[in-house]
């Protein structure tokens, strides 16, 4: 057993790449659910919009990196928000939930379809679109940084990720202290009340869906850049719920909640992941119980179990208070 690797990996989970991808996605969900009460179960599709917006712009359409950023961060997520929001935001909350989860499935089918291979690269996805990003890398690719946790390229992704994450945090913090955020919270509490006071609830919900979606797209884009590939497998339906667990764990409607949640979640996930792998590799785990390929499945089980337990026993999260926001309400 290599305890050094286990500890190192857990620590990487706290601050590393997946933490950044999912903090961003969960910040978006916080905008949706925590502040506006929207049930978005398709955050993975917004993430995919970011990843595919960039990669399709560069690889399929032959545009440059900057157009890719525009497509991935702004245009794709906005279109997606319109498609999912226009039919559902007038209706009860479950309809958005159904449509967003259906959109995830549609994404999976379309992105994997061989008939669209020319556009999406089907199951293999797209690669070689992030060179421009790494051109700016000031770190030495051969060296390790930050207590030896990241090699040069990773360090660059993580550094830019932290900066973007800070900007997103600042945006959420500022808007939630503004009249705009007040309207969102009012809609979360009672849409009709907001409407009776002359607030266009539909439009505010749409804005929330769009902006939270853009945060998700940023997360997805980082995932594509960090792994240097945009693959359907990285944005399947269940990916959304990693962000949900992070959100509820940290506490919805807290500006820093998603970040704390994502850090703790990935700390735990990385820890169990490496621990199990080590157990399997070193023969401590009987093969009848688990082999190497099944380790990855355990993390999904933990996500499912985490959702159940949090929703039942600690809906306000670790840091949240019942007064401000709790899942177990309404």
């Amino acid at each position: 057993m290599d305890w050094g690797a286990i500890i190192q990996n857990s620590f990487r989970g706290f601050i590393g790449e997946p933490f950044i991808y999912f903090s961003l996605a969960a910040m978006g969900l916080n905008m949706h659910y925590g502040y506006t009460g929207l049930l978005n179960f398709g955050q993975a599709v917004f993430m995919a919009a970011g990843a595919y917006g960039l990669s399709m712009a560069v690889v399929t359409l032959g545009l440059n990196f900057w157009w890719g950023l525009l497509l991935g961060i702004v245009i794709f997520p906005l279109l997606l928000a319109l498609i999912m929001g226009v039919p559902t935001l007038r209706l009860r909350a479950d309809y958005l939930a159904i449509v967003t989860i259906a959109a995830s499935e549609m994404f999976r089918i379309i992105a994997r379809s061989p008939s669209l291979d020319r556009w999406t690269g089907s199951s293999d996805g797209l690669t070689a679109f992030a060179n421009r990003f790494y051109d700016f890398n000031p770190f030495d690719k051969q060296k390790r940084y930050f207590f030896g946790l990241f090699i040069g390229n990773q360090m660059w992704v993580v550094l830019v990720g932290w900066i973007v994450l800070s900007i997103v945090v600042l945006i959420v913090w500022m808007t939630m202290r503004s009249p705009w955020g007040r309207v969102l919270r009012a809609i979360r509490e009672d849409e009709d009340a907001a409407r009776s006071l002359g607030k266009n609830a539909y439009w505010f919900k749409m804005q929330s869906l769009m902006i939270g979606g853009m945060f998700g797209a940023l997360g997805g884009m980082f995932r594509a850049i960090g792994t240097q590939s945009a693959q359907p497998q990285n944005f399947i339906t269940d990916v959304t719920f990693f962000a949900w667990v992070a959100l509820i764990l940290g506490g919805a409607a807290k500006v820093g909640g998603p970040i704390a949640g994502a850090a703790i979640l990935y700390g735990i996930l990385n820890f169990t992941d490496v621990l199990l792998r080590q157990l399997v590799e070193n023969g401590y785990m009987p093969e009848a119980i688990m082999d190497g390929t099944q380790v990855g499945q355990v993390r999904f089980m933990m996500i499912g179990l985490g959702l159940i337990l949090l929703a039942i026993y600690r809906p306000q999260g670790i840091f949240g208070t019942k007064e401000e926001m709790a899942l177990d309400d309404r």
């Binding site: 049930l39 479950d94 719920f241 159940i308 337990l309 929703a311 899942l327």
Partner: peptide, 19 residues
Amino acid sequence: ASLVAALVVSIGFSIFFRY
């Protein structure tokens, strides 16, 4: 329990059972 909490729990079970 609220319906939203129940919804989230059902999703949790969906993922858990599936895997």
